[in-house]
Nucleic acid binder design. Structure first.
Lengths: 193, 193
DNA sequence: GAAAAAGTGTGATTTAAATCACATCCATTT
DNA sequence: AAATGGATGTGATTTAAATCACACTTTTTC
């Protein structure tokens, strides 16, 4: 149940067995079936979540009803709405399982405890958030300076299997174009290049 | 020299005077005149920088020669290229003073030392980066789901004085449109609304 | 204080992508 | 196996913004 989390944590920080045993007591395992939601907009995000197995997506829905995907949550990633989690205000995000998934949830109070009791975890999360920030900044600059086609190629490069695991219209909404535009892009690629 | 940093740090964490006195020894003050660069693309980002006074911008230049602004560095903010700072690989960013500025620089090794010696700073930076991530995610979703006009209004709301302090073409390149588009937007606003 | 450089406004035209519309196609469910 | 809903492909049209071009203004700089 906790092997994968243990492994991922060990990749960035040194942690004793006792410390990890303690950490384990603070997480709640949960299985989430495909198409079920971990968070729905309007609700407060009560957990930050480690994906042990499966695939999720976090997304918003705008005024026109269009979805915009912030993140695909693959195995070994964390998902949640940081803002709502920290402020306990209603979230604007939805988090949905795209495959049957096994998750490890931690509440705000347990998370605070973990950071207080095990400083190594403070560093782990700092590093995690840091890498996420770097990636998000890159993606932001990418949406401003590159074409839809370049962003699509980058996605395929960064997540080679995602294209097989999720419907194309979700990939479109991740790179910030309509499903029609992505469809045309793909057919051009088959013929042209 | 360090009053403002002390104040900002105190807003998020509890820190003893000895701890802050120690931290002070790790920073290098620097004055940077308007139009001078703190970082140029191709160079390694050797410092992470606190803005005591003044205004900077960090930006990339794309293949076509267009600039894209990641961040305006106002008083009390941190600027730098995290990726280059952490990996010691050449940066793709430029950081330029838009006004005469007073800065506090910290090198990678001093920063590591600070985080090791003063765990409260680990928390301070975790919180800082966390808030930056939340803001960057919002901006990313904004570029995907809102019009240029909405993004412009949001910028004016978030940074009421920025419009007076920096040229309009930089504001355009922050919200992700050309200077012409922003110009037309503004003239519509004067007449219409 | 003149000259150069940087910044802004506005028209005409082009372009990339959104929107609208409809035809498949595929997969799950009953 | 038929039926329903989700997903995809593709044409026609519209739209928002980019691009090109040039005039004018303001700010630096020598």
């Amino acid at each position: 149940m906790f092997e994968f989390l243990h492994q991922k944590v060990n990749e960035t920080i040194k942690i004793t067995n006792e410390e990890f045993e303690y950490a384990k007591t603070l997480f709640v395992p949960k299985k989430l079936r495909k198409k079920r939601f971990l968070l729905q907009d309007g609700d407060i995000c009560l957990y930050t979540t480690f994906v042990e197995r499966g695939l999720l997506r976090s997304f918003t829905i705008d005024d026109k009803g269009n979805e915009h995907i912030l993140q695909f949550g693959l195995q070994g990633w964390w998902v949640g709405d940081l803002y709502s989690f920290l402020t306990e205000e209603p979230s604007e995000y939805n988090i949905e399982a795209l495959e049957d998934s096994e998750l490890l949830l931690i509440t705000r109070s347990s998370w605070d405890l973990l950071l207080d009791e095990v400083p190594a975890f403070e560093r782990y999360f700092r590093t995690l958030i840091q890498n996420n920030l770097i990636a998000t900044q890159r993606r932001l600059m990418g949406t401003m300076s590159t074409t839809a086609e370049e962003r699509y190629h980058k996605l395929l490069k960064d997540f080679p299997d995602i294209s097989q695991r999720v419907p194309q219209h979700m990939i479109a909404s991740y790179i910030g174009v309509t499903r029609e535009t992505l469809s045309r892009l793909r057919s051009q690629m088959v013929s042209g290049n």
